[in-house]
C-alpha cells in the first residue's frame, strides 16, 4: 500500500508543480498511514534522491533518454505497471499538460476513479472525497471516488510546497522497450519566461491598453515581480498578444497568488478563468467596471499613469531605484 506521485519534468529539470504534487502525496500518505513513492520517467540533470525532502521514500526511475519524448501511451503502460507492483492506492498527478495527457488513460486502464483539478487533500474519514473546481472556477464539487485505486490530478498553485529534510531511495526499473506511436518532432519553449499556469504572480492587460505597442509597462512590471503576462480574450482575438496568454473561461484558467488586471472590464467569462486567484488587483479607467466587484484592491485611473508609478514603487521596494 502506498501513494504514487508522478514526477513531471522538462529540459532536465523538475517542474514546480512536481514539488506541489510530491508535498500533496506525502501529506496524503501521512493522513492515511502509508508511504509516498514517486515515478520518474526519462533522464534529468537534477538529483532524484533529493526529492526525499518533500516527504517521499522511494523514486522509481526508468532512466531512458527515449522517454524524454513524451508519449502518453508508453507512460500509461509503465505507470500502470509500477502502480500495480507497489500496490498503489492513490496515484497523484499535476493537472497540467502532462497530467491531462496521462491520468485519464491510466484511469480507464486501471478502472481507477479519477478526479482532475483537485484543490485540497481528500477527506478520507468516510470514503474518499475530493474537492475540485467546476463551472470554470465558479463553484466547487465534492466528488466521491468509489474504486479501491484512485487517481487525483492536483491543480497548480492549489497546494503549498512543503520541504523538509531527507533523501529518497532511487530504484532503477528495467523496462522492455516498445516503439512509441507518437513522434515528438520539436519543442519550442519560451526561455526564461514563467509558464502562465505555474506563475505565482500574473500581470494581465485588456482592451484598455489600446494597442499591442503599449505593452511595455505590463512586461516591465511583470519582469520586476517575476510574474507571467496574460491578456483578455479580445486582446488575443485581435492578435495583440499570443493566444496562449488568453486567460478566461475559454482560454487558460489560472490561480496565482496575485492577479493584476490592467484595462480589463471583467466580463463573467474572464472572471471564470481568474477568480481562483488569491488576491486580485484591478486597474481600470472606468470606476464602474464590473471587475472591481471581484477585486481585493482597485485603482480607478489611467493605466498609462498608474503603471509607471507601480513600476517605480516596486523598484524602490527592491532597492533598484
Amino acid at each position: 500500500m502506498s501513494i504514487l506521485v508522478f514526477i513531471d519534468h522538462a529540459d532536465g529539470h523538475f517542474k514546480k508543480t512536481t514539488y506541489e504534487a510530491l508535498s500533496y502525496g506525502a501529506a496524503l500518505a501521512k493522513q492515511t498511514g502509508t508511504q509516498a513513492e514517486a515515478v520518474l520517467l526519462g533522464t534529468v540533470s537534477e538529483d532524484a534522491a533529493s526529492l526525499g525532502k518533500y516527504g517521499i521514500q522511494k523514486v522509481h526511475q526508468v532512466n531512458q533518454e527515449a522517454l524524454n519524448a513524451f508519449d502518453p501511451q508508453t507512460y500509461i503502460r509503465i505507470i500502470a505497471g509500477i502502480a500495480q507492483a507497489i500496490q498503489a492506492t492513490v496515484i497523484v498527478f499535476s493537472h497540467n499538460s502532462s497530467g491531462k495527457a496521462i491520468a485519464p488513460g491510466l484511469s480507464a486502464r486501471l478502472k481507477a476513479g479519477l478526479v482532475t483539478g483537485a484543490i485540497a487533500l481528500p477527506d478520507t474519514s468516510q470514503g474518499f472525497l475530493v474537492k475540485k473546481n467546476v463551472f470554470s472556477g465558479k463553484a466547487f464539487a465534492i466528488v466521491s471516488i468509489k474504486t479501491p485505486v484512485r487517481i487525483i490530478s492536483l491543480n497548480p498553485n492549489a497546494y503549498p510546497v512543503v520541504a523538509g529534510e531527507g533523501s529518497a531511495e532511487v530504484v532503477q526499473e528495467a523496462l522492455a522497450p516498445e516503439a512509441a506511436k507518437v513522434k515528438l518532432k520539436s519543442v519550442v519553449r519560451a526561455s526564461g519566461e514563467i509558464p502562465l499556469t505555474e506563475a505565482e504572480i500574473v500581470v494581465s492587460g485588456g482592451r484598455g491598453m489600446k494597442g499591442p505597442e503599449n505593452w511595455g509597462p505590463i512586461e516591465e512590471l511583470a519582469k520586476l515581480l517575476h510574474a507571467a503576462t496574460a491578456c483578455s480574450r479580445p486582446v488575443a482575438d485581435a492578435g495583440w498578444r499570443p493566444h496562449g496568454e488568453h486567460v478566461g473561461q475559454t482560454g487558460v484558467a489560472i490561480a496565482p497568488n496575485l492577479y493584476i488586471a490592467v484595462g480589463i472590464s471583467g466580463a463573467i467569462q474572464h472572471l471564470a478563468g481568474v477568480n481562483r486567484s488569491k488576491v486580485i488587483v484591478v486597474i481600470n479607467k472606468d470606476p464602474e467596471a464590473p471587475f472591481f466587484k471581484a477585486a481585493d484592491y482597485g485603482i480607478a485611473g489611467d493605466a498609462f499613469e498608474v503603471l509607471p508609478k507601480l513600476i517605480g514603487a516596486v523598484k524602490k521596494l527592491r532597492g533598484l531605484a
Binding site: 485519464p104 488513460g105 467546476v134 470554470s136 471564470a272
Partner: peptide
C-alpha cells in the same frame, strides 16, 4: 466548461 474534467478524450483513447 461545466465539470472541467479534461478526461473523456484520454479515456476513449485508452479504451
Amino acid at each position: 466548461i461545466d465539470y472541467n474534467g479534461s478526461s473523456v478524450g484520454g479515456m476513449i483513447a485508452a479504451l
